[in-house]
Simulated scan of single mutants.
Amino acid sequence: MIKGFAAALIAALALAGGAVAQDNAHDPVLLRFAVLGDAEPKPCALFPGVEAAVVDVNALAESGRIDFVVGVGDIAHKGTGIQYENVTPALQSLTRPFYPIMGNEEHNDTVERYLEFARQWNPDITEPSYVRDPGPVVMVHASPDFGRDFNDDGIDWIVEQIAAAAPRPVFLVVHAAQAGVYPEDADKGVQNPRFQEVVGQANLAAVISGDLHMDMDRTVHSRQIGHVHYLHIPALERTKIPDETHHTPMYRVFTVLEGGEVRVDTYETGNLEPLSRHDYSFTLPQ
C-alpha cells in the first residue's frame, strides 16, 4: 500500500510546483529533515498514520529534499512485540535514514528489545541516546532513562553533549519537554528539576518533542521560552489533547537556511503542501 500511493503523490507535488523545491530561489537550504510523532495505536496494532506519513516523506525526498527522518518515541504501545513488528515494514520503507529515540511506551519493555527493532529501522542505531552532526546544527537525540524522564546521569550526558558542541547551535530531540512548557497539560513532562541546566545552555536552539498527542489546530504547538524554541510533534495515530474527538495525522519538516533561519512546516498526511496556518520560524543563535 505504501508504494502504491507514492507515485501519485510525487506526481501531485510536481504539478503543484513543489513547496520544497521553491527554496532554491531564496536562501540556499543547508539542511532539511522530517520529524514523525508518536504512534502507539490502540486497541489494534495498525499504523495507517505512520504509513501515510512515510509515503509523503518519501515523495518530498524524491521531488525536493529530505536529508533524514527523526522519531520522537512512543512508536510501540506498551512496547509489545506485535506493535514493533507491525510498524517495522513502514519504517523500513523510508528512503532516508531514520533516527528514533525511545518514549515512555518503549520503557514498558526493555531497552534491548527497543534496540533490536531500532537496528532494523536503521543499522546505525546501537544506543538509545546519541549525537549526530549533520552540518549547520548538532542533533542530540536523548532517550528518557525511565518513563519520559531523566535521572541525573542522563541530565549530565545531555549537558555535556550540548556544551561540547558550543558555540554551534543544538537541536535537542526528546520524547517530552519539561513539565510546564505546554499549559495544555502542564503536569506532564520531564520532572527532574535539573533539566533547567539543559535548557539553560546558551547554544541550545530548540527542543523537539512529542508525548502529548496535541491537536495542532486546537493547541499552541510552537513557542519560545527564554532563548529556546519548543516544537511539538503531533501524534500520527491518536490525538489526546484537548480531547480525543478529532484526529488528523500530521508531521513536521525542519528547514535550515544558509542565513541561519529555521523554518518549521507542518504537513497533513496526503497533502504535500505545508499548512500555512501552522508556519513557525526562528533564527539560530550566532
Rank of each mutant, 00 (worst) to 15 (best):
L36W: 06
Y267N: 08
L204D: 01
N108A: 12
R238Q: 15
I155C: 10
P100L: 06
M214Q: 11
D23I: 00
N203P: 12
D124P: 03
P89A: 08
D145W: 00
T88N: 12
V35F: 06
L36I: 13
L272E: 04
G49N: 04
A205Q: 08
Q286N: 13
P41S: 08
N203L: 08
L284N: 06
A177M: 08
G73K: 06
L115P: 07
S209T: 11
I158W: 01
E51K: 00
L212A: 09
P97S: 13
I101Y: 11
A142T: 04
Q120Y: 00
R32I: 10
E197I: 04
H278I: 08
E197S: 13
A53Q: 06
E237S: 08
A53I: 11
T95D: 13
P28N: 14
M1R: 12
A16H: 09
K42Q: 12
P123A: 10
R119E: 14
V262T: 05
N192H: 14
K240M: 13
E261G: 02
A76N: 09
V220F: 07
Y251H: 07
G154S: 04
F33I: 07
T126K: 14
D56L: 00
V54R: 02
D185T: 04
N192S: 15
A186K: 12
I2A: 12
G210E: 05
N58H: 12
A7K: 03
L275N: 12
D149S: 01
Q92C: 14
Y251C: 07
A235E: 07
I82S: 14
G135K: 05
Q22C: 08
A39F: 06
T245F: 08
P97I: 11
H213M: 10
Q92G: 10
A164S: 15
P167R: 06
M214S: 03
N192I: 15
F117Q: 02
N192L: 15
V54S: 04
V70G: 02
D56C: 04
G17S: 12
H229S: 14
Y182H: 07
P97C: 12
N104R: 03
F171L: 02
Y182K: 00
I225S: 14
G270K: 13
V111W: 00
E105S: 07
S63Y: 00
D38Q: 03
P274Y: 01
D67Q: 04
A166H: 03
V173A: 03
D109P: 01
L212K: 02
P274E: 05
F117P: 01
R132A: 10
Q191M: 03
R218D: 15
H221G: 00
M216Q: 07
M1S: 15
L94F: 01
Y182M: 04
V20T: 02
L30H: 06
Q196N: 10
R223S: 14
M216H: 00
E268L: 01
T80G: 06
I158T: 07
E127M: 11
H227L: 02
H175Q: 12
P28D: 10
L284K: 05
H229L: 11
A45G: 09
F195I: 08
Y130T: 06
V35M: 08
I225H: 10
P234S: 14
N192V: 14
V35W: 02
A6W: 11
A7W: 00
H246V: 03
D145C: 05
V220G: 09
H213A: 13
I101V: 15
P167S: 08
V170C: 02
Q161H: 15
G4V: 15
K78T: 07
S143H: 01
E197L: 15
H107W: 05
A45C: 08
